[in-house]
Simulated scan of single mutants.
Amino acid sequence: MRATYITAVVFSAAFGLLVTLPINSASAQACGGPMPFETAREAMESLIADPSATSSVRGGWAVFERRNGDLTEFWTFTPKDHPAFPSVARRMGCRNADGAWNVRTNLICQSTKTACDALLHEYMLLDEQMKESIRKRHGSGT
């Protein structure tokens, strides 16, 4: 059975904390806001029509990059042969008001719970890697 699972994961680079937050929380507003789409298809159509978004295909995954002021969003769409298809993730690296770096991932997964849970786990591992990259480039937080 397919359902839509929407989640937000924030990884704090300064403290090494992983927290799953409600979509409409205050922290979502500070780092890109809640997911602006309800389906992967809706997100894809919007990004294709957005002249500020650049696209590429990496390993079969459609990838879009969009800059909005100081915020850069990376959108990745699962390929059709992926167990979690159709799904989209929006990933952002941004600073909190206290100067600490966070990696925020919003995920819309419209597959089975098992496939969506596995995809979320993959993104959590990628967020670890992104956090390390930010830490090396910008220091531990401030």
Rank of each mutant, 00 (worst) to 15 (best):
W61E: 12
G93K: 01
T105L: 08
R41T: 10
P34N: 14
T7K: 10
F64S: 05
A53R: 02
R41C: 03
T78K: 01
V57F: 13
I48F: 06
L47T: 05
A28C: 10
T105Y: 00
D98G: 04
G99F: 14
L71N: 12
T54W: 12
D70P: 07
R95Y: 06
W75V: 06
T112L: 03
V10D: 04
C109L: 06
C109G: 00
V19P: 05
D81H: 13
Y5R: 15
R58L: 11
T7N: 10
T39K: 09
D117C: 09
V88W: 01
I108E: 01
A115Q: 02
L47D: 00
E122C: 07
M35V: 09
L21F: 10
M130E: 07
A40E: 02
A53K: 00
V57H: 11
N68T: 12
M92N: 11
E132Y: 03
K80N: 06
C31N: 05
C116L: 05
K131R: 07
M130K: 07
E132R: 06
E42Y: 03
K131A: 14
D117S: 15
F64I: 10
T114R: 15
W101D: 04
A26W: 12
S140Q: 09
T114S: 14
T114A: 13
G16T: 04
T54F: 05
A40Q: 00
D98M: 08
N102Y: 12
A8N: 13
A30R: 10
R90P: 00
A118M: 13
P34Q: 11
L47S: 03
H82V: 04
S87F: 05
P79Q: 08
G59A: 10
E132L: 11
H121V: 13
R137F: 00
A43V: 05
A43L: 07
C109K: 02
T20Y: 11
E42N: 08
A26D: 15
W75N: 03
F85Y: 15
R2K: 11
A53W: 04
A13S: 07
L126E: 06
S25H: 04
M130N: 11
K80D: 04
S56E: 15
G141W: 00
A49E: 08
V88M: 02
H138M: 14
N106A: 07
V19D: 10
G33P: 07
V19L: 14
A89E: 03
P22C: 03
R90M: 02
G60M: 12
F64N: 01
E45I: 06
G69V: 12
R66T: 13
F85V: 05
H82R: 06
S133G: 11
F15S: 09
R66F: 08
E45T: 05
T39Q: 02
T4L: 09
G60I: 14
A28W: 12
R58E: 15
A100T: 12
A30C: 09
W75D: 00
P34R: 09
A84Q: 01
R90W: 02
L17V: 14
C94L: 08
T54L: 09
A53Y: 02
R137G: 02
A84P: 04
G16R: 08
M130W: 00
H138E: 13
T105K: 01
S12F: 06
D98A: 08
L47K: 00
A30N: 05
V103Y: 01
S56R: 15
V10E: 11
V88N: 00
S12C: 12
G141C: 06
R58A: 13
G60R: 12
